[in-house]
Amino acid sequence: MIHDEDILELSEPSLSPSEKLFLPQILGGMVTTIVHMGKSMVGQHRTVQYPEQKRELRLENYRGVHRLNRDEQGRVACVACFMCATACPANCIHIEAGESPWEDREKYPVKFDLDELRCIFCGMCEEACPVDAIELTPHYDLVGRSREEMILDKEELLSVYDETRELKPRKNPHITGYEGTGGRFHANGDKND
């Protein structure tokens, strides 16, 4: 709420005599631009020649294409807890859970579909994931010929992990360990949750 007394009427700044003459200011501006031009001509321009050059991204927090992490044994790290699907504001994650064939967890995702066209790349899924199974990678050049192609399934998301594991190692590989069959998990890494 803006009150009347908060409103301040503004005017243009009054010009000093030398500013009123315009000419010094114009010449100053032209010197500025010619300096920039000279720098650009010798190659100091800011353009990134995209397909050949790529920008250096901050790997730890750039939010690009998603990946599903694998644990140490190469299995999908996801435990199908639906936390990411619940947290997702764009409703782009679709999980079908099944009984886990492995000893250390109850469930695992039979299907894990992620619609990259619906996704708004907010990173909430990554925040929500209790086992750090879903992460966003610095990959931003995702293309496809159809809308169906842009819905990544589990295998595709896992292959994104295979491609990017050297670039961006998994944050905390120790977190997925289950102990016993109690259905409870606990963190034995340094993650505080």
């Binding site: 908060d6 409103i7 009427e9 503004l10 005017s11 243009e12 009054s14 010009l15």
Partner: peptide, 18 residues
């Protein structure tokens, strides 16, 4: 007279909330 065409104090050009 301002060279920009506005005499000083001729009125507001914009209103900003402080």
């Amino acid at each position: 007279r301002e060279i920009t065409g506005r005499s000083p104090g001729a009125g507001a050009i914009g209103v900003g909330a402080v």
